[in-house]
Design a protein around this nucleic acid. Structure first.
Lengths: 149, 149
DNA sequence: CCAAGTGAGTTGATTTAATTAACTAAGTAT
DNA sequence: ATACTTAGTTAATTAAATCAACTCACTTGG
């Protein structure tokens, strides 16, 4: 966590939050509906209880996960994603699609419910109201540092 | 590397390849044009030489990075991405966009060159020839395991 | 020609992070 | 009352990453 990568780069700073071992998988698991500690632990075959516990705490501090008590005495929590946590869905989809195209053994594909055809990810310009080729977009610096919060 | 996550899931298996510390940042750095060992080392402020060396070797084995000798005696290499490495660009874009929307301090945004307007990532169905809402797509299992290679 | 500097690493020691294993505490089911 | 489940915590061990120093081949400056 604590600022591993010092680079002035969205990707590095995002990975400072979600780049630790197991972290993305935990978030993904919550996203797909595993919401209690043991559901997560069972589903994430191989994770240890203390690590899961630590990660959940950090993710809550970072504002990606929210927890609500569903039983006092003993305290039992349900973990859900916040809006920013849920926004990682695009990252998961990008990883899934990469895996679909490049893994030796692939498990999932992303399909359009209506026609069952596989979908792709594309860049869309809301101003031009069209999809644009990757070659026609560039990452450019923003001046207005300090965005949300 | 060696199969940390055992889950039958594209995301977990993809992270087995690119999920280690520094790995995605190295790949991104090569993508944006840092191609020699020292360029990478300088650009990735904080990485140690041995880790960079290890990672490059593993990424080459995994087929995401290719190296070509640009000087024998002493051997000097130039590192470039293979096709599968380059396909990670969508993952980088997804991380960049997430950072743009959720980081306290954001450095980059992704803009359409022509109109300088910020772009988004969307799901596109090549069969329907339209963009589709995330709610209208689902990850479904594939039977034909064993894809490429 | 000799010293200092650069590129591309390797080796070994230390520190940090993750895994394994055992344990607790409250409540439920048998 | 005993065993089992949920949701963890604590401590010990192992694995991974960082730090620091070193190598080796070549290049440049004096």
């Amino acid at each position: 966590m604590k600022e591993r990568y010092k680079l002035p780069c969205n990707i590095a700073q995002t990975l400072n939050i979600v780049g630790d071992r197991w972290t993305l998988l935990i978030l993904h698991d919550i996203l797909v509906g595993n919401e209690t500690f043991n559901e997560l632990k069972k589903s994430l075959d191989g994770i240890s209880a203390n690590l899961l516990s630590d990660r959940l705490k950090h993710l809550e501090e970072a504002g990606l996960v929210a927890s609500s008590v569903y039983s006092k005495h003993p305290p039992r929590y349900q973990y859900t994603l916040t809006d920013s946590g849920r926004e990682l869905e695009l990252v998961f989809d990008a990883l899934l699609v990469w895996g679909r195209n490049n893994l030796d053994i692939c498990y999932k594909q992303l399909v359009h419910n209506e026609c069952q055809h596989e979908v792709e990810l594309q860049h869309y310009c809301p101003s031009c109201k069209t999809n644009v080729d990757r070659a026609d977009v560039s990452p450019v610096p923003v001046e207005e540092h300090q965005l949300n919060k």
